[in-house]
Simulated assay, not measured.
Amino acid sequence: MPPLDDLDVLGASTSSGDMFLLWRTGPVTDGGHPVLWLGSGQRVEQWANVALMLASVLAYTRSTVDDVVGRRPPFDRF
């Protein structure tokens, strides 16, 4: 785990305590610094840069929306 002084908070959950942190002094990959996801004080996942983290969030959001929309009743019957 990097020193706390080397981390900036990108986002934090008020309900679960999860945090997304930018390791601003970490190795540069494709023009960006690593992003860490911490849950319950443990590293859940790490991405090489912010762009890859956001792509992962977008993919998760799309699959979640697809799941929710797939469970809706068809509205064309009304």
Rank of each mutant, 00 (worst) to 15 (best):
residue 2 P to C: 05
residue 3 P to W: 03
residue 6 D to E: 14
residue 7 L to R: 10
residue 7 L to C: 00
residue 9 V to W: 05
residue 11 G to P: 02
residue 11 G to A: 15
residue 13 S to V: 01
residue 17 G to W: 08
residue 18 D to N: 12
residue 18 D to K: 15
residue 18 D to I: 04
residue 19 M to K: 13
residue 21 L to W: 04
residue 21 L to H: 06
residue 21 L to F: 00
residue 24 R to Y: 10
residue 26 G to K: 01
residue 28 V to Q: 12
residue 31 G to K: 02
residue 32 G to K: 03
residue 32 G to A: 06
residue 34 P to C: 02
residue 35 V to M: 11
residue 38 L to P: 00
residue 38 L to I: 12
residue 39 G to L: 07
residue 40 S to H: 13
residue 41 G to S: 05
residue 41 G to H: 11
residue 44 V to D: 11
residue 45 E to R: 09
residue 47 W to R: 10
residue 48 A to P: 15
residue 48 A to G: 09
residue 51 A to M: 08
residue 53 M to N: 06
residue 55 A to H: 13
residue 56 S to E: 06
residue 57 V to A: 15
residue 57 V to M: 15
residue 58 L to Q: 11
residue 58 L to A: 14
residue 62 R to I: 03
residue 62 R to W: 04
residue 65 V to Y: 14
residue 65 V to Q: 10
residue 66 D to M: 13
residue 66 D to S: 07
residue 67 D to C: 05
residue 69 V to A: 04
residue 69 V to N: 02
residue 69 V to M: 08
residue 70 G to V: 01
residue 70 G to N: 00
residue 71 R to K: 08
residue 71 R to C: 04
residue 72 R to W: 03
residue 72 R to T: 05
residue 74 P to N: 11
residue 74 P to M: 03
residue 76 D to T: 09
residue 77 R to T: 07
residue 77 R to S: 06
residue 78 F to V: 07
